[in-house]
Computed example of a mutant assay.
Amino acid sequence: MAAVAGRARERDLHGIRLTCRNGLGLERFYEACGYKEIGRAPAAIRVAEGEYRDETTFWLPLR
Rank of each mutant, 00 (worst) to 15 (best):
residue 1 M to N: 03
residue 1 M to L: 04
residue 1 M to A: 02
residue 2 A to C: 02
residue 3 A to D: 01
residue 3 A to N: 12
residue 3 A to T: 09
residue 5 A to Y: 00
residue 6 G to E: 14
residue 6 G to Y: 08
residue 7 R to I: 15
residue 10 E to N: 11
residue 10 E to H: 12
residue 10 E to L: 02
residue 11 R to E: 00
residue 12 D to H: 09
residue 12 D to Q: 09
residue 12 D to V: 01
residue 13 L to N: 04
residue 13 L to T: 04
residue 14 H to Y: 06
residue 15 G to E: 01
residue 16 I to W: 02
residue 18 L to D: 00
residue 18 L to G: 06
residue 18 L to A: 04
residue 19 T to A: 12
residue 20 C to R: 15
residue 20 C to A: 14
residue 21 R to Y: 04
residue 21 R to D: 15
residue 22 N to V: 15
residue 22 N to K: 10
residue 22 N to H: 11
residue 23 G to N: 07
residue 23 G to C: 04
residue 24 L to G: 13
residue 24 L to I: 06
residue 25 G to L: 02
residue 27 E to V: 12
residue 28 R to Y: 14
residue 28 R to A: 09
residue 28 R to D: 06
residue 28 R to W: 13
residue 28 R to L: 07
residue 29 F to A: 07
residue 29 F to W: 14
residue 30 Y to G: 08
residue 31 E to K: 06
residue 32 A to S: 07
residue 33 C to R: 12
residue 34 G to V: 01
residue 34 G to I: 01
residue 34 G to M: 00
residue 35 Y to D: 01
residue 35 Y to T: 07
residue 35 Y to R: 13
residue 36 K to D: 00
residue 37 E to N: 13
residue 38 I to N: 04
residue 38 I to Q: 02
residue 38 I to A: 03
residue 38 I to C: 05
residue 41 A to R: 15
residue 42 P to N: 14
residue 43 A to P: 00
residue 43 A to V: 01
residue 44 A to N: 11
residue 44 A to C: 10
residue 45 I to A: 10
residue 46 R to F: 01
residue 47 V to H: 08
residue 47 V to W: 05
residue 48 A to R: 12
residue 49 E to A: 09
residue 49 E to L: 07
residue 50 G to T: 05
residue 50 G to Q: 12
residue 52 Y to C: 04
residue 54 D to K: 10
residue 54 D to A: 11
residue 55 E to H: 09
residue 55 E to A: 06
residue 55 E to I: 04
residue 56 T to R: 13
residue 56 T to H: 11
residue 56 T to I: 09
residue 57 T to F: 10
residue 58 F to M: 06
residue 58 F to N: 03
residue 59 W to G: 02
residue 60 L to F: 07
residue 61 P to C: 06
residue 61 P to Q: 08
residue 61 P to N: 09
residue 62 L to H: 05
residue 63 R to Q: 14
residue 63 R to F: 08
